[in-house]
Design a protein around this nucleic acid. Sequence first.
DNA 1: GCAAAAGTGTTATCCCTACACCCATGA
DNA 2: TCATGGGTGTAGGGATAACACTTTTGC
Lengths: 222, 222
Amino acid sequence: MTFTYDHPHPAVTTDIVIFTIRQNQLKALLIKRALAPFQGEWALPGGFVDLDESLDEGARRELEEETGVTGVYLEQLYTFGRPERDPRERVITVAYFALIPSDRMELRAASDAEGVSWFGLDELPELAFDHSEILGMAHERLIAKLDYSTIAFQFMPATFTLTELQSVYELILRESVDKRNFRKGILALGLIEPTGGARRAGAHRPAKLYRVIDRSRVDVIK
Amino acid sequence: MTFTYDHPHPAVTTDIVIFTIRQNQLKALLIKRALAPFQGEWALPGGFVDLDESLDEGARRELEEETGVTGVYLEQLYTFGRPERDPRERVITVAYFALIPSDRMELRAASDAEGVSWFGLDELPELAFDHSEILGMAHERLIAKLDYSTIAFQFMPATFTLTELQSVYELILRESVDKRNFRKGILALGLIEPTGGARRAGAHRPAKLYRVIDRSRVDVIK
DNA sequence: GCAAAAGTGTTATCCCTACACCCATGA
DNA sequence: TCATGGGTGTAGGGATAACACTTTTGC
C-alpha cells in the first residue's frame, strides 16, 4: 500500500522525554534502537503520528506503548525539523516531555525497542539523531518550570511527605533549599493538604503525609 | 509530478503571527485567502515547508514573501495538529510569532493573498482554520514574555524615546506604568544608551533618543 | 506666559532569606 | 537514653511600589 501526493510531504513523529525521580536522581527513559538507522544506539521513545490522531494523542500513545503508563503529565516541548536530522527522509518531530511519579514504574519493552532503561541526567549515553539536543532542551525547561510553576507535584505519588517533595526540588535544581522557607512557601500555595496519616521510616519522628487537593490545578503558576 | 510514500504523511506548514505597534495599538497581520478552503476569509500568513529548509527558514521565508521584511525577531510558538483542522488533508502547522518594529511597514501582498491588513487585537475578524486559537496563544505568550524578558525592544525602531518604549508596555499590558520606576528599571538593565540626539515633537521639552547597545543581547531575561 | 510632555529621588512596604532549637520515634 | 530525621517562627535586608514637582519647548 502506498500514499501519493502532488507535492512532497515530510514524515512527522513525536518523541518524548520521560522524566522521573529514581534512586535519588532525576532520570530520563531511553530505548535502544532495534532497527537502522542508529541501530543499537540509545534514543528517545517516539514514533510516527497516525493520520487520525492529534499530536497530543500520538505522544500519549507512544508513551503508553513504550512504558505502559497512562494519565501522566505531558506537555509539548518544541518542534525539531532540520532537514538532515534523519538520514532516511525528511522527518519533523514534535517533542514532548512527560513527568511520571516515582511509584509508577512498571516498564514495558515495546516491539521496536531492544531495551528500555532509565539514565541519570549525568550519565547519559550518546544519543541517536538530534535527541541529545531535545533532551537538553527538555531538561532546561524542567528546571525553569520548577521556579515558576508547581510542576514538581507531578513527580509525587498519591501521598508524600514534605521532605520527599523538597528533595525533588533539590535533586533537579542541584542546590539545597532551606527547610522552613520551603515548607512555608509550599503550604502557602494551598494546593496540598495533610492526609492525616504519617509515615514511620526509622528511628525518628514520623513524617506527616500530604496529598494534592486538586490534581487539575497542579500546573498553575506559583 | 507526484510523491509516493509507503505510509501516510501529513502536510506541514508554518503559520506566523506577526505583531507590530501601529496607531497606538498592538496589531497583527492577516491575509485574505484567495483560494479555497476558507476563500475570502482572513487567515495568518504561512505556507508549506520546503523539504530542504528548516522550520525556522520556512517561517522566515513565508514572513518575507508575505510582508517583505527580513531580519526581524522570530520565535517558534507551538505546533498545532488536530486531524480535522484543515478540510483538504491532514495538515500540521508549526506556528511562529514575529515582532516587527513600528517603522518597518512596507507591506507587500503576495501571490496567494487577495489582501493584507493589520488588525488591532480588539477588532479581529473571524479567522480561517484554527487560526484564532493560534493568534490567541501568541498574544498570551507575548504578554507573558513582556514580564520576564526584554522582548519589547523588538518593537522599537533604531532610535526611540523612553516614553515611546513605555507606551509599548502599556499598550500590550493594558495597564499604566509608573514613569519613574519604569525608567529606573529599563536603564538598570544596561541594554540601551542615549544617542545624544533628541526628538522635538511639539510645544514641550524634547525627549532624549536612545538606541539598543547590542541587538543580539536583546532577548535576554530581565 | 501658558500649555504640554520630559525628566528626576525618596520613602514605605512587602517579600525573600537567613537562621537554631525542640519533637517523636526506634533501637 | 541516644541517635535520627521531622517540625516550627522571627528578624533583617533588598527589591518593588507609591508618590509630586521642576524643566524645556512651541505657540
